[in-house]
């Protein structure tokens, strides 16, 4: 499988086993989520006769307090968590890269203002802001997945902006940028055609590492009852719903918890691996 990916992507998979494990775990979870309708039952179907049933051949992960198949809910939960996490990561990356690139490229007062804004965001714990924002959005607009996406993007773009700004500061002194300027290229052209594409490597590493963190944030919000609302299956919310039964039906918390841990572990290992690749390339260059 790794060979195929190597040929297809044209990138070298490092010999690092942990990275391979990370990639396997991530692919495994993505595949589970993608093929959920084929491998899982209806995650909403209740059956009170099976309420709090322990894991069995019929219900691999047992049943929850409404007799729903927990395996199906965890698998569909993977879909929810991954889709939301990747959406947040994409939005944050887009916003953060643009702001960071503008800040680094133009410098001066723009850089100062953006720099201070970034400092302010970095000085406040992200989860506190996320909880406050989701709470406000829920109170005003009612519960929605978009509340979670907006609240997390609000704090998450900062790390992208900081990294991008740093890269752009070094890139803009490179010869090919001077050449572009010399032939009269506009700033926007230089930014979008030369600077951002060249900064993408480390940003993609950051995004990969970040997906793990975002999954944790979504699960934390879900656990606090602020995230994605029932009956939509989501790992944090599944953990929350099982906490009252931890002594009598521990499987309700165990399996969602396991999948949260696995996905974070997978994305972090993969991110670390990608960082190794980039590092090697940089040294080679």
């Amino acid at each position: 499988m790794f060979k195929v990916i190597e040929i297809f992507r044209g990138i070298e998979i490092p010999k690092n086993n942990l990275c391979r494990i990370g990639l396997s775990v991530v692919l495994f979870i993505i595949l589970l989520g993608s093929f959920a309708p084929l491998i899982a039952k209806d995650p909403y179907e209740t059956n009170m006769a099976k309420r709090l049933e322990s894991p069995s051949s019929e219900h691999f992960f047992g049943a929850d307090q409404l007799g729903r198949d927990l395996f199906s809910r965890v698998i569909y939960g993977a879909r929810t968590s991954l889709i939301v996490a990747i959406t947040i990561s994409a939005f944050s990356m887009g916003i953060g890269c643009l702001i960071g690139a503008v800040s680094g490229y133009f410098g001066g007062i723009i850089d100062d203002v953006i720099g201070r804004i970034i400092d302010v965001f970095l000085s406040i714990p992200e989860i506190v802001v996320n909880i406050a924002l989701v709470g406000v959005f829920c109170t005003i607009y009612g519960s929605s997945t978009w509340n979670v996406i907006l609240a997390v993007v609000f704090t998450n773009w900062v790390s992208y902006a900081r990294i991008t700004r740093g890269i752009v500061l070094s890139l803009k002194e490179r010869e090919f940028i001077f050449c572009s300027k010399a032939i009269g290229a506009k700033s926007s052209w230089i930014l979008f055609k030369h600077i951002i594409p060249n900064a993408l490597g480390p940003i993609i590493v950051l995004a990969t590492l970040n997906v793990g963190n975002i999954i944790l944030t979504i699960a934390s919000l879900g656990f606090l009852g602020l995230g994605i609302q029932p009956p939509t299956p989501e790992w944090g919310q599944l953990l929350n719903s099982g906490k009252n039964y931890i002594a009598t039906a521990p499987w309700i918390t165990f399996f969602p918890g396991l999948f949260i841990a696995l996905s974070v572990f997978g994305f972090n290992l993969l991110g670390e691996g990608l960082r190794d690749i980039l590092e090697r390339r940089r040294i080679y260059e």
Binding site: T46, L66, C138
Partner: peptide, 21 residues
């Protein structure tokens, strides 16, 4: 509410559950 939603779904009613502050 989740159980009611499912019971109504079983008779052909398409219920959207909104869990609200």
């Amino acid at each position: 509410a989740q159980l009611v939603q499912q019971q109504l779904k079983n008779v052909g009613l398409n219920i959207k559950l909104e869990t609200l502050e």
